[in-house]
Simulated scan of single mutants.
Amino acid sequence: MTVTHPVGAEEVAIRSGPPSPPPDRPSATDRWTRLTRPLPALLLVGLLTAGWQLMAETSGSALIPGLGEIADNLAEITVSGALWENVQVTLVRVGLGFAVAFVVSVAAGIAMGRSAWLRRFLEPAVLIGLATPGLVKALLCVIWFGVSLLNPILTVALAAAPALTINVAQGVRAVDPALGEMAHIYRFDALTRLRYVWIPAIVPDLFTGARLGIAMAWKVIVLVEIFGLADGVGYQLNLEFSQHNVAGVLAWTIAFALVMAIIEYGLLQTAERRAVRWRRVAAR
């Protein structure tokens, strides 16, 4: 007769080794990586700042103001409320224009990725849009639409759409054909395919195109506000330039760059990490 005895929890733990941490809990290495991730960028900013101050002190030129003078101008526009007022106006214009570009580019990019005929039909227009300088787009929209809200919206859309369209089309072409066959077998309608098949599959390309499109949008919106509008960051830059205030121009430029950095690192990268989280989980 065989005699057995129950196995205790301690014995099971000893045999199986120490319990592994939950897969969703970040390890100490991951936490340290997250904490030190901004250090290279901060180091670059520090070096550029120190280099500028050294150049300002050695040159002694009014065209190269020191950090103190720039900081005074930045504090002045912040305290007066002009900074947030004009940045908000510019952000609204960029947001509306990019929303238009996003809708058009996703539709056109998916169409180009799915149909060779449509790709050959739309590709010349996309390439022309990429090759046309932002200054030309800004000037034409100012001439055609004047100071209306349609002017900056269309300019931003024309600037952001080409890069976004190309990335979406490339992402769609790289999608596994089995996904399309599955959608056809289950008879998904167009909206269901877009929501559950194409958009999740092209998320990395979508964010890459969005970064390029927003970068183009920042450039042209400043030009539009300089040439044809009476408010916004571009208008304030032009105003400081007309008064030969180099420190004021640099103060508005730094403020605008900080806003762009917040959008890139605080919004876009965070949204991208959350959007592709399912890919990392599936790869485990």
Rank of each mutant, 00 (worst) to 15 (best):
A183W: 05
R31N: 07
S20I: 12
V136P: 07
P19I: 08
A230H: 13
G266W: 03
R284E: 13
P6G: 09
A183Q: 04
Y196P: 04
L229T: 03
E57Q: 15
V92E: 08
R193P: 03
G146T: 03
L164A: 04
G213K: 07
G171I: 09
P18L: 13
A261C: 03
V87T: 14
E76T: 15
L42C: 07
V203Q: 10
P124S: 11
D30P: 00
A163L: 07
M216Y: 08
E57M: 13
L35G: 04
A169P: 06
D72I: 05
L63P: 00
V3Q: 14
L206V: 01
I143M: 15
A217H: 03
V175F: 04
Q53K: 06
A161F: 14
F256T: 04
I214E: 01
Y186L: 09
V175P: 02
L267Y: 06
V147F: 12
A116H: 13
P18N: 14
I166C: 00
A71W: 06
A107T: 14
A138Q: 06
L47N: 00
I128N: 05
N73T: 03
G146I: 08
R195W: 12
L74F: 14
R211A: 04
E10P: 02
L206G: 08
R274A: 09
A255H: 01
L63T: 06
W117M: 12
M1E: 14
S105L: 02
L130R: 13
V249D: 00
A190F: 03
V103P: 05
M55E: 06
A138N: 13
